[in-house]
Design a protein around this nucleic acid. Structure first.
Lengths: 192, 192
DNA sequence: TATATTTGATACACTAATGTCTCATTCCTG
DNA sequence: CAGGAATGAGACATTAGTGTATCAAATATA
């Protein structure tokens, strides 16, 4: 649908377009086809050749990011490990890529496919939260949507800390886990 | 600057425009002058009469929201009370109005005045965080920007919980305080 | 009620962005 | 190295939004 019939695409061209689009759309959700083309070092006509409309492009990028995020999250997961470890490795995988995903919750949310993919992600997190509750890492009376939202936000906060230079990726992940489960008060360490 | 000379404005008209703009811009940062006018029940020409350009309007709305937020935050504050109480009353004041402020961190951030006002807010929160550290409510080794970001996010998460119907304003504030200081693990309650 | 002034509606010029098309050039592939 | 295909550059029509101007109607104020 988004890929016209006649023209094939050169891998390098596609890669350049996708990367440029991800970078730009995350910074400026209203980025222009001209801007994206320029950033990709590609003619504007080439964009339209492979993504007929701007919406097609945004949708394709959104789906790609979801997929990427999916792979990152599920990649380092060992179902046998305790829920806390799974939480930690999820943070480790996703936080450093925060600048590629932040736009998922913004503009592209008006596309059905992307929205569905994003919801699937949130449900995956919700399942993790349930496991954390079973293990006693999260109190049973905490609303699951609250915990999910909190985790979602911590990813962004973590990436932001890295981007601003006051955290390393490892520190960010540790801080995220600690903040989620134990808060910012220092002394209570149920898992120490 | 943003208020042309010749025409005065009727209070009701101004109020309608401001409210419509706040509502729309928070939902869709790219809302159109026509959309805002329609929502305000006002002619598009009237918008341009009092806010020469769209940027003027967005800036005015941004500044107004900052001011509103300022008033809400500082209103219920008693400098004599402990830092935790000040944190709580801040949440109580700001969370229910989350849907009016969310756009401050988005589009209007490209205006110098709004950006400055927003930074001032964050610095106010930073000062509160320092107090919380002194009182031992937040561990001294937690980076202040991390705590500030966390508080900022909790406002949004709290409002979201209210909007989605699984929290009352009071529950949201309590949950925010608890999550910030003690995390989601149930048993460790340093302040209980 | 009479007057002044804001407002609404409409028309207009202008701009920026989208999407289509063509053609010369460049790049792969055989 | 030749043929075929993708690309870059540019022209073009179209659309949507902005900002200006005008004038009749509604509204406030005296």
């Amino acid at each position: 649908m988004s890929t016209p019939r006649k023209h094939a695409i050169r891998p390098a061209t596609l890669e350049a377009i996708v990367e440029a689009a991800i970078r730009l759309l995350n910074v400026n959700a209203g980025a222009t086809m001209s801007e994206i083309a320029a950033r990709a070092g590609v003619g504007r006509a080439t964009l339209h050749r492979h993504f007929r409309t701007r919406n097609d492009l945004v949708r394709a990028i959104g789906l790609r990011c979801i997929e990427e995020m999916n792979a990152a999250v599920r990649g380092g997961q060992d179902a046998g490990k305790p829920a806390v470890d799974r939480l930690r490795s999820m943070f480790r995988a996703v936080i450093p890529m925060g600048d590629r995903y932040s736009f998922l919750s913004l503009e592209s949310a008006d596309d059905a496919g992307v929205r569905q993919g994003y919801r699937a992600q949130l449900q995956w997190v919700a399942a993790l939260v349930e496991d954390l509750k079973i293990q006693g890492d999260i109190a049973a009376d905490v609303p699951t949507p609250w915990a999910v939202a909190q985790i979602d936000q911590l990813v962004w906060t973590g990436w932001n800390g890295i981007a601003e230079g006051y955290l390393t990726p490892d520190e960010a992940s540790e801080l995220a886990v600690g903040t989620l489960l134990r808060g910012l008060h220092g002394e209570a360490r149920p898992h120490a």
